[in-house]
Design a binder for these strands. Structure first.
Lengths: 225, 225
DNA sequence: GAATTGGTTTTCGCCTACAGTCTACGGCGC
DNA sequence: GCGCCGTAGACTGTAGGCGAAAACCAATTC
């Protein structure tokens, strides 16, 4: 028993710590990039960002460094950081990798999932469909992300989850503009996926997820033209 | 035509630029980690490393930052960097992800490969076997890496290649101690893989690569006990 | 003897300053 | 008028320094 004080565990609100500045800068920049406030190809000047965010250059540099390794910005030596410009080819490759990772996650989820897990998935699906019916695009996209994240969690492979999280976020960056077009159909497929997971049918879960992600990929390709 | 000088393209050796210091620090630290000079769990003190490498703390910080995002070190806030301690579970997950990525790469390679590509693979395989015969473990491991990298290159998916490169390097970190045990058998499997690629047989290439990487995974598991 | 508390030291997080390098622009020669 | 060179500006790369938080250790109290 750790707490020798008579206080209950959650009584002390953990003393909201701001957390490392570099992380907050990272989050801020990522937000600016994903919302297109910083456009692809744009030159990111360290001192400018630092001044704008009210911090020094150092945290900005570290944030840019991290964004670089995750593929959000390109760091050209002695020239600075530029917001990454996604090519159509790269987007397609990213989507195909996503298909691979998500399909595997679906398979593992089907192998591991219990009744309570399935219930949780159903709940997420309900909310997602509700958002679609209400024309709440942002909400639907968010629920979609949470659903996929939940499947990934059920897969129980943290390494896989880490890679998928990166890929997914970038995919969503490219994909958000076309998300609007893909409403109900997507959630019907989600239902099929959950059914397959509930049946513990690894083969079918893999196939459904593959079809699902490939579907969005095809939609992206058609949009390119 | 860019070169208006009459000089051939490669004549000027690009004026050997030292390149960003942080990258060299990164390479140096990665070398130290993979060679076990810095042991898992060890606390990495910035000023210590900086002094040892003859640079300031800043490049060291940036290198550690990058190593952190790639999973080599754990960056605990306000505490510093610690060499990542791989758990058995994590190693297993990493190996399973590797299987997934490499199998897909093999499939794509089989779909794309031409005669010259197959020849290049054969050449790498020859050298690898030569290294094994000479009991040159480090050389064999290196050739193994280059062979897999070549397959990945043939797959033609840079995103996939990027992920696989990270995973592979970490796998090799865990795996190096047991590499010695897995000599000839591994290279026989390589031959089978190349044959499948030469036949443009995607199914078989996938299966062979999957068996190959799963084989090393099993070997690792047995070693755990 | 065990737990706590206070001070001390180490180390990180961030800021500021300086040097090197690349880019852009204006003047000069052809 | 056209192209080259030199200079000025801006930005990045690196170094050093200060304040603060965490870990460590010893003295003290129960």
């Amino acid at each position: 028993m750790l707490p020798t004080t008579g206080l209950p565990q959650g009584a002390v609100p953990k003393l909201e710590r701001p957390g490392p500045l570099r992380d907050r800068v990272y989050e801020a920049l990522l937000e600016l990039i994903t919302t297109r406030a910083l456009q692809p190809g744009q030159h990111l000047v360290e001192s400018e960002l630092a001044g704008h965010l009210g911090v020094s250059r150092q945290p900005v540099r570290e944030a840019l460094q991290r964004l670089s390794t995750e593929g959000w910005v390109d760091l050209r030596p002695a020239q600075g950081a530029f917001v990454h410009e996604p090519t159509d080819e790269e987007a397609d490759q990213l989507l195909s990798v996503r298909t691979l990772l998500e399909a595997e996650a679906a398979r593992l989820a089907a192998a591991n999932a219990g009744a309570d897990a399935v219930a949780a998935l159903e709940k997420l699906c309900d909310e997602g469909e509700k958002a679609v019916d209400a024309d709440d695009v942002d909400g639907a996209v968010a629920m979609n992300a949470r659903l996929h994240a939940k499947v990934m969690e059920l897969a129980g492979n943290t390494v896989l989850a880490g890679l998928a999280a990166q890929v997914d976020r970038r995919v969503r960056w490219y994909y958000t503009p076309v998300a609007r077009q893909r409403g109900h159909r997507s959630w019907i497929e989600h239902r099929e996926l959950i059914a397959a997971i509930a049946d513990r049918d690894e083969e079918r879960a893999t196939a459904v997820m593959r079809a699902h992600t490939e579907h969005t990929r095809k939609m992206y390709r058609e949009r390119e033209k």
